[in-house]
Computed example of a mutant assay.
Amino acid sequence: MEDRLKGLRKSMKQTTFRQMDFSDQLRKRVHEKITQSHEREEDILLAVLQLLGSEKTGYDLSQLLRGRGIQSFGRNEGALYTLLHRMEQDHLIHSGWDHDGAKYYQLTNKGRKVLQKSEKAAGKKQFGLKELTQE
Results as ranks from 00 to 15, higher is better:
residue 35 T to S: 06
residue 35 T to F: 07
residue 36 Q to M: 14
residue 37 S to I: 06
residue 37 S to Y: 04
residue 39 E to S: 11
residue 41 E to H: 08
residue 42 E to Q: 15
residue 43 D to G: 13
residue 43 D to F: 13
residue 43 D to A: 15
residue 44 I to D: 04
residue 45 L to R: 08
residue 46 L to A: 15
residue 46 L to G: 07
residue 47 A to R: 12
residue 47 A to F: 05
residue 47 A to Q: 11
residue 48 V to M: 13
residue 48 V to G: 03
residue 50 Q to S: 15
residue 50 Q to C: 12
residue 51 L to P: 03
residue 52 L to M: 05
residue 54 S to A: 06
residue 54 S to G: 05
residue 54 S to I: 00
residue 54 S to K: 00
residue 55 E to Q: 14
residue 56 K to W: 11
residue 56 K to I: 04
residue 57 T to F: 05
residue 57 T to M: 00
residue 57 T to Y: 05
residue 57 T to N: 04
residue 58 G to I: 09
residue 58 G to C: 05
residue 58 G to N: 09
residue 58 G to D: 01
residue 59 Y to G: 10
residue 59 Y to I: 07
residue 60 D to L: 03
residue 60 D to M: 01
residue 63 Q to V: 15
residue 65 L to K: 10
residue 65 L to G: 06
residue 65 L to Y: 10
residue 66 R to G: 14
residue 66 R to E: 15
residue 66 R to C: 10
residue 66 R to I: 10
residue 66 R to T: 15
residue 67 G to F: 11
residue 67 G to L: 13
residue 68 R to A: 15
residue 68 R to E: 15
residue 69 G to V: 09
residue 69 G to Y: 03
residue 70 I to M: 02
residue 70 I to D: 02
residue 71 Q to W: 10
residue 71 Q to T: 15
residue 71 Q to H: 11
residue 72 S to N: 13
residue 72 S to E: 00
residue 73 F to A: 01
residue 73 F to G: 05
residue 73 F to S: 04
residue 73 F to K: 06
residue 73 F to R: 09
residue 74 G to F: 07
residue 74 G to D: 10
residue 74 G to N: 10
residue 76 N to G: 06
residue 76 N to L: 05
residue 76 N to T: 00
residue 78 G to H: 07
residue 78 G to A: 08
residue 80 L to G: 07
residue 80 L to P: 12
residue 81 Y to D: 02
residue 81 Y to N: 01
residue 82 T to V: 00
residue 82 T to C: 00
residue 82 T to W: 09
residue 83 L to P: 13
residue 84 L to S: 05
residue 84 L to C: 11
residue 85 H to S: 02
residue 85 H to V: 04
residue 85 H to E: 03
residue 86 R to K: 14
residue 86 R to F: 08
residue 87 M to N: 12
residue 88 E to K: 14
residue 89 Q to P: 01
residue 89 Q to W: 03
residue 89 Q to E: 10
residue 90 D to E: 14
residue 91 H to N: 15
residue 91 H to A: 15
residue 91 H to S: 14
residue 92 L to K: 14
residue 92 L to F: 13
residue 92 L to C: 07
residue 92 L to N: 04
residue 92 L to Y: 03
residue 93 I to S: 05
residue 93 I to N: 14
residue 94 H to V: 02
residue 95 S to D: 03
residue 97 W to M: 07
residue 97 W to C: 06
residue 98 D to I: 06
residue 98 D to M: 02
residue 99 H to M: 02
residue 99 H to T: 15
residue 100 D to W: 00
residue 101 G to M: 11
residue 102 A to Q: 03
residue 102 A to L: 08
residue 103 K to H: 04
residue 103 K to V: 01
residue 104 Y to W: 15
residue 104 Y to A: 00
residue 105 Y to E: 07
residue 105 Y to K: 12
residue 106 Q to N: 11
residue 106 Q to L: 08
residue 107 L to P: 12
residue 107 L to Y: 11
residue 108 T to I: 00
